[in-house]
Computed example of a mutant assay.
Amino acid sequence: MRAVVFDRYGPPEVLRVAELSDPEPGPGQVRIRVRAAGVQPFDVGVRRGEMPWAEVRFPQTIGQEYSGVVDRLGEGAGETGLRVGDAVLGSTMLNAYAEMVCVPVQNVVRKPDRLDFPTAAALVAASQTASGALNELRVADGDVLLVHAAAGSVGTVATQLARLRNATVIGTASPANHAYLRQLGAIPVAYGEGLVEAVRTTGLTPTVALDAAGGEAIAQSVALGIAPDRVGTIVDDKAAAENGTRVVRAGRSPERLAEVIALAARGAVTMPVRAYPLTDVVAAHAAVESRHGRGKVVLILEP
């Protein structure tokens, strides 16, 4: 099978497509023929060598989120009702940019027919991260949620889920993405040095903040008077410690993922996809690394 590997830490150019042996599913596993794989900032960090706890052995495969079709069942995996040919999606660890991946059957979520493979892959990590963060921050009806980097993948899902909870959302983004945030139901403001005043100009008082940007986002949220226990970050542990706020990483949950996927199948949650063929993985990583653009970068594998 074809898979993306890297032989040393470094820039996007260290990534290459290699031929590897097809994996075989063990007991309780299924093998997925991958149709699309999401690209996330975590992958960039692994490639750079900035995730010391990640077990990397060169040549190292990479990738955390996939959608595809079941093509082989390991011993006992059929007891769940999953069958060869079923369309699925889910999380994995450092091996999703590949034509095949083997995963525990209990981590697999069925893909609704109305959701295409690229969008399904694009929603895997963002859905679990955003829904978990909103739960930890207790976002509810009547809240005014400030989402930093609202046009990114996590911000996109968090904004829509918060609106479904009847919260008001203020989203930070570059001016080029303000019309997009309005489409999601958010009130857009430009990020940067003038953010605090820009938020105040809306006439709204934020009660909770989710940081998916880093930098000054946490300090700005605290300056706006948001209680520290309701300021959460998914990207900046250091700033959270310095400001007495929270790191919100609820972890993976197939159940939470399935809930958001069901909303997406009904059109209640959307995700713009920026698609690249597997052979353009270097460009895909460069796009994520730039921290610009909206929605999600996804690698496409032909069936």
Rank of each mutant, 00 (worst) to 15 (best):
M1Q: 12
A3L: 07
V5W: 10
D7W: 05
L15C: 07
V17G: 12
I32E: 08
I32L: 09
G38S: 11
V46H: 06
V46G: 08
P52V: 00
V56E: 05
P59T: 09
E65C: 08
G81C: 03
D86C: 08
L89E: 12
L89A: 11
L89F: 12
L89S: 11
Y97P: 03
A98D: 11
M100W: 11
V103E: 11
R110Q: 11
A125R: 13
S127N: 13
G132E: 01
L137G: 01
A150H: 01
G152E: 03
G152Y: 04
V154R: 05
V154F: 08
V154P: 04
V154K: 07
Q160H: 09
R163W: 08
T168M: 12
S174P: 00
P188I: 13
Y191D: 09
E197L: 01
A212W: 04
G215T: 14
A217P: 14
Q220K: 13
R230Q: 06
T233H: 04
A240F: 11
E242D: 15
R249C: 06
R252E: 14
R252T: 15
R256P: 10
I261Q: 11
L263P: 10
A268C: 06
M271N: 09
R274N: 15
A275C: 09
D280H: 11
A287F: 13
H292P: 02
